[in-house]
Simulated assay, not measured.
Amino acid sequence: MACAPSDSDMCEVFSAPIGHLQRLTEQCLDESGDPQNYVYLLQCLLSFKGVESWDRCLESLQTGECEIDCPYCGVNMFIVIGEDRGDIACPECGTAFGVADPIVERWMQ
């Protein structure tokens, strides 16, 4: 006989409060104007939805930093995401590319 409920049992027991917290977080997310607060709220929302890996992947974005690989030559780069979130040029091969796809690709590994 188990003394503690399993994870799935806990989700069932607390489904109503988790659902309420999820709705409140979505509301706050819609109203957030601060980038760091937005990332924090997005982490919370994903946790409430049971998405663990994306929660961990967003941690670096809270500080505006991310590691990506150049999609052309594969060199690993450390980037700081600021106001300009468009294209960057690889320091190794010089090819310009958008950062969004490489960031998502790295998180999906």
Rank of each mutant, 00 (worst) to 15 (best):
F14M: 12
S15D: 10
S15A: 14
A16C: 08
A16I: 11
A16P: 03
P17M: 03
P17R: 02
P17I: 12
I18P: 02
I18C: 02
I18Q: 15
H20R: 07
L21K: 03
L21N: 10
L21V: 06
L21G: 02
L21Q: 03
L24D: 07
L24G: 11
T25H: 08
Q27H: 12
Q27R: 04
Q27W: 01
C28T: 08
C28S: 06
L29F: 10
L29A: 07
E31I: 09
E31T: 07
S32L: 14
S32P: 08
S32Q: 08
G33S: 05
G33I: 12
G33F: 10
D34M: 12
P35A: 10
P35T: 09
P35F: 10
P35K: 05
Q36E: 13
N37C: 15
N37K: 07
Y38G: 11
V39Q: 09
V39W: 13
V39S: 07
Y40T: 14
L41F: 04
L42A: 15
L42S: 14
Q43R: 14
Q43N: 15
Q43W: 05
L45R: 13
L46D: 06
S47D: 09
F48W: 11
F48A: 13
V51P: 05
V51A: 09
W54S: 09
R56Q: 08
L58K: 00
L58Q: 06
L58V: 04
L58H: 02
E59P: 07
E59Y: 13
S60M: 05
L61I: 10
L61V: 08
L61G: 04
Q62F: 03
Q62A: 10
T63W: 14
T63V: 11
T63F: 03
T63M: 05
E65I: 01
E65F: 00
C66D: 07
I68T: 01
C70K: 00
C70E: 04
Y72C: 10
Y72M: 01
C73M: 02
V75S: 01
V75R: 11
M77S: 07
F78H: 01
F78R: 01
F78E: 07
I79D: 00
V80M: 13
V80R: 10
I81W: 04
I81G: 01
G82A: 03
